[in-house]
């Protein structure tokens, strides 16, 4: 698929994963990998199964088939807190911040169970200077864009080996969405592995090296970002080009 050596095992391997709710599968036999240092996008429209797939990978819900391996360990049946401690940080679209806690306390909990190092905190504040200004403000009283910064910052506090984001631009104005992606690009330059689910396809493909198109819970297409961006079907369906 990419030019990586077949000998090195990918950081994340999702094989034949199916998942759903109340006995009805929403995601069917999804297989893909994320190598160390990769930026991979899962693109698809609303209801394609992106969130279900991500929730299954991070242990928030149980799959109905297939396996998930992360860093050489099978995490298929691991709980969300175990997956998080293994170094896979997930930022859900709804963010799930602690609304009655300060920005600082939210970030501190990101490093749980350790006490966060001052350097790590400084790194997050460098990436999002706005958070340094609002350190003592309750997360619940912040704007959507600021909450997204807290959510990403909190995920980074654990020094993750893989950062997974589900639609980080949800509810953000176009300018803020672009800013969010600039921050992600900066993280990526520092070598962080990123897996992102997105329906704002141009943004996602600009960030990622390669992507998968998810439709009705199945992967329909895979390729490098350039290949996908020039694919006529993708252009028609997601890039608004006839």
């Amino acid at each position: 698929m990419t030019g990586r050596s077949p000998l090195s095992e990918p950081l994340l391997t999702v094989s034949d994963v199916s998942a759903g709710y109340l006995g009805e599968d929403v995601v069917h036999d999804v297989t893909f990998t994320v190598g160390e240092g990769d930026a991979v996008a899962i693109i698809g429209s609303n209801g394609a199964g992106k969130t279900t797939l991500f929730r299954t990978i991070c242990g928030m819900m149980q799959n109905t088939g297939g396996t998930v391996t992360f860093g050489g360990t099978d995490i298929t049946t691991a709980g969300a807190h175990q997956v998080a401690r293994a170094g896979l940080a997930y930022v859900p679209a709804e963010r799930h911040l602690f609304p009655e806690m300060s920005v600082r306390d939210n970030l501190i909990l990101g490093a749980y169970p350790d006490r966060p190092s001052a350097e790590r905190m400084a790194l997050v504040f460098e990436l999002f200077p706005r958070l340094a200004e609002r350190e003592r403000q309750h997360a619940g009283t912040m704007s959507g864009g600021e909450q997204q910064m807290v959510a990403v910052g909190r995920a980074l506090m654990s020094e993750p080996t893989l950062l997974m984001l589900d639609e980080p631009t949800t509810g953000l104005a176009p300018k803020l969405a672009a800013e969010a992606y600039q921050a992600l690009a900066a993280l990526r330059e520092q070598g962080l592995t990123v897996l992102i689910a997105e329906q704002q396809v141009p943004l996602a493909l600009a960030l990622a090296d390669r992507g998968y198109v998810l439709e009705n819970g199945r992967i329909q297409l895979a390729g490098t970002s350039e290949e996908l961006a020039s694919n006529p079907d993708v252009r028609r369906a997601y890039l608004g080009v006839a």
């Binding site: 807190h81 998080a84 859900p92 911040l97 602690f98 609304p99 009655e100």
Partner: peptide, 15 residues
């Protein structure tokens, strides 16, 4: 406190 405020968020933090 984090579990009281947002249990899912707490799990994402490794709690």
């Amino acid at each position: 406190r984090s579990v009281i405020q947002d249990e899912e968020g707490a799990r994402l933090c490794g709690i």
